[in-house]
């Protein structure tokens, strides 16, 4: 059913643009699907001298569905607030994308790996996401839904417990569809 949106949208566009050589660009506000669901937040905790991996539960995102269209490229832009409560260390973020819930737990589902960032004390550190997704994920964006899961890799070399949460502040995917999407 979601695919009908794409049909309507593409038809609408085609009515007036004639498609031509222009591209269809879908700016998908992923954050709007995650906000307030709990999936936009990853709590983290690591004892002194330890590392830990933590993650939010997977979340379904509805998409228009691009059918047999060909995805040219997908770019992700976003910001994450690392709201640190105690301790110091580094936090790396991961975004997993898959066609189903279980798939987000597979290593191959790792779509975005944000380099580790240092945090310390009771501070909020803003981290940015800006990455071109691998072509291996292109086919996901032709479907009417995908699943997303956030993960955080925490390393605590300090002497006190590292604790806090990574809160997604924005995440926008720009999906560029090649011309002949019918």
């Amino acid at each position: 059913m979601k695919a009908k949106w794409l049909g309507l949208a593409l038809v609408s566009a085609a009515v007036v643009t004639g498609c031509g050589e222009g591209r269809a660009i879908f700016n998908v506000d992923l954050y709007s699907f995650l906000k307030g669901t709990g999936s936009d937040t990853v709590p983290y905790f690591a004892l002194p001298g330890f590392s830990a991996d933590t993650a939010s539960p997977p979340r379904k995102v509805n998409l228009p569905g691009a059918g047999s269209s060909i995805v040219d490229s997908v770019r992700a832009f976003g910001t994450v607030d690392l709201v640190n409560a105690t301790g110091s260390g580094t936090i790396g973020l991961q975004v997993y994308l898959a066609a189903d819930s279980l798939g987000t737990y597979k290593p191959s589902a790792l779509a975005i790996n944000v380099p580790s960032k240092s945090v310390s004390g009771t501070n909020t550190t803003r981290d940015t996401i800006r990455v071109d997704l691998s072509a291996a994920f292109d086919s996901l964006f032709t479907k009417s839904q995908l699943w997303i899961r956030f993960g955080a890799s925490v390393s605590n070399p300090g002497a006190t417990t590292l604790q806090g949460k990574a809160v997604l502040a924005s995440l926008l995917l720009t999906v560029i569809i090649k011309d002949k999407f019918f």
Partner: peptide, 16 residues
């Protein structure tokens, strides 16, 4: 010539 500019769709949970 047919128009060649890009067509942009903004998609969110409650917006198109």
């Amino acid at each position: 010539p047919t128009p060649t500019n890009d067509v942009v769709f903004g998609i969110g949970k409650d917006s198109l």
